[in-house]
Design a protein around this nucleic acid. Structure first.
Length: 234
DNA sequence: GCATTAATTGGTC
DNA sequence: GACCAATTAATGC
């Protein structure tokens, strides 16, 4: 397998770092990143723990979660190849506001806060990219508040599937296997409701299942059902 | 095979 | 629509 991911040869061209790759003579940032390999279900960021820089998914997938009051997790977003995780802990001596867990065997690149800060000061386009990302994320989270307040359970589950299709929907089945609990954490409801909604959606021929794999049958019909909520879904 | 975890179903508030 | 309990299916060791 790839022994150590190098930014120079990396093919994740929507990764902020790769996209703004700029070898600097005085300090080779790229050689100072660490590589972390996670097995499926392995947690690599724990909410409330001290920040240890930020991560980029090199290969694989991860979920980013936040714990609610009653100890229930909410999936905030997913990150796949080339995407950042842990960027919000990017302040002074802070703790991470989220947890992150690998959904598959995943390889991560990790930049220390110190190194990444230097990079931001050296490469303006990298800073700009990150800023845009923060802004977008804020928009999405505001849209989500509205959504959670107004959608029915069925709509929330459908919305979750539309999102999953966008992130993991290459081919017949979703490119990821999530437990019912995880889908509930994503949709913002309970496991039981997800189970019931899934079987209803199967009966309606909107989605299909093969073992643990789930697939979308009629994306347009699903979108139509949540068309009234035309915000940005997650 | 046994034991733990996940999925499902039914019932109550 | 959430929470709880009981049953069944799936999976790990």
């Amino acid at each position: 397998m790839d022994s150590k991911p190098e930014c120079r040869t990396c093919t994740n061209d929507h990764c902020f770092v790769k996209r703004n790759y700029e070898p600097i003579k005085e300090d080779d940032f790229y050689s100072r990143k660490l590589t972390l390999r996670c097995r499926k279900s392995q947690q690599f960021i724990l909410e409330g723990s001290p920040v240890q820089g930020l991560f980029f998914v090199y290969k694989g997938a991860a979920k980013v979660t936040k714990t609610g009051l009653n100890g229930k997790d909410q999936i905030v977003r997913f990150a796949t190849d080339g995407e950042v995780i842990g960027h919000r802990g990017f302040g002074v001596g802070q703790v991470y506001p989220i947890s992150a867990t690998a959904l598959d065997d995943t390889i991560l690149c990790n930049f220390s806060t110190e190194v990444f800060t230097k990079m931001l000061m050296t490469i303006p386009t990298l800073t700009l990219d990150l800023m845009r990302f923060y802004a977008e994320e804020l928009n999405r989270s505001e849209a989500k508040v509205k959504k959670f307040a107004q959608m029915s359970v069925r709509e929330k589950v459908i919305d979750a599937f539309v999102l999953l299709n966008r992130v993991f929907g290459h081919g017949d089945y979703l490119n990821i296997v999530l437990s019912r609990r995880e889908i509930a954490d994503l949709a913002g409801t309970t496991e039981e409701q997800v189970i019931r909604t899934i079987s209803a959606l199967k009966k309606d021929k909107l989605i299909k299942a093969e073992g643990k794999k789930l697939g979308i049958l009629d994306l347009e019909a699903l979108k139509r059902e949540i068309a009234d909520f035309k915000y940005y879904s997650i």
